[in-house]
């Protein structure tokens, strides 16, 4: 069973992938909830434009998304230059860039799941909370958020899974630097491009499948627990 043993480089790629996906999910979570809430509840000028913008990464070829990220967040990009100069944050060719690419690609999935659950909330419960003295922020924290928790969890898992598997935008934006931006999919891709890389590709594929299944099971478990807490099952 020697061929099952992971090499140090492969372990690095796995760890990096988990880190990138986790950061992508966590960093986009607050914005995801805010945008989902905005789209579900508010009517404002430019709402359909925002909706299109959020869903764009789902429709565009990932390479295009990655290239746009490079243009905007690259060292010479408008936003990238600004962030580098004033905050010392660099995305280009760093693992943070991989996380950004994962977050952007997973964002539409996250927002979609959360938006649906916000739309399903009985607003009369929020009204009731208001008459009991809760201001809008407290209503959101104590009533809306607990009620949409299953949707939030689903959105987080989708975003995590998308970031784990993200390939096209990542490799375009931050390339494929072992130890810095080489995640699972790019590592597998490299293995398939070199002679004798089959066993490495297979090992990482198995790991990838295992992580995906674990994430799915975890989300099922969490969502069921959250649902039973709010009396849905």
């Amino acid at each position: 069973m020697d061929w099952l043993t992971l090499s140090p480089d492969e372990v690095t790629a796995i760890k990096l992938s988990l880190k990138v996906a986790l950061w992508a999910m966590l960093a986009s979570l607050p914005l995801g909830i805010a945008v989902a809430y905005l789209l579900a509840r508010c009517d404002f000028w430019g709402k359909s434009l925002l909706n299109v913008l959020v869903h764009l990464p789902l429709i565009l070829p990932p390479v295009v998304t990655g290239y746009i990220l490079l243009l905007v967040f690259g060292r010479r990009g408008a936003v990238g230059e600004f962030l580098d100069q004033y905050f010392g944050i660099v995305f280009a060719f760093r693992w943070t860039g991989a996380a950004l690419a994962g977050a952007v690609m997973g964002f539409p999935l996250m927002v979609r799941a959360m938006r649906l659950s916000i739309e399903a909330v009985d607003r009369r419960l929020e009204q009731a909370a208001g008459t009991l003295g809760a201001n809008p922020a407290m209503v959101f924290l104590t009533v809306t958020l607990p009620l949409i928790l299953p949707g939030v969890i689903a959105g987080m898992i989708l975003s995590f899974a998308k970031a784990m598997g993200e390939f096209g935008a990542t490799i375009t934006f931050v390339s494929n630097i072992p130890g810095e931006t080489q995640t699972l999919p790019t590592a597998i891709y490299v293995f398939t491009q070199v002679p004798g890389g089959d066993s490495g590709a297979l090992r990482l594929t198995l790991v990838s499948v295992a992580i995906s299944i674990a994430a799915l099971l975890a989300s099922e478990f969490l969502a069921r627990r959250a649902a039973s807490r709010i009396g849905l099952s």
Binding site: R124, A128, G130, T131, L132, R229, G231
Partner: peptide, 27 residues
């Protein structure tokens, strides 16, 4: 509404499903 201190008993109860009866009462 939240600053009126007017209690409202709705036709359909509108209890918070994610809270126990005691938590509902104390909300």
């Amino acid at each position: 509404a939240h600053r009126r201190r007017v209690g409202y008993v709705f036709q359909e109860g509108r209890l918070f499903p994610h809270l126990t009866v005691q938590q509902n009462l104390l909300y």
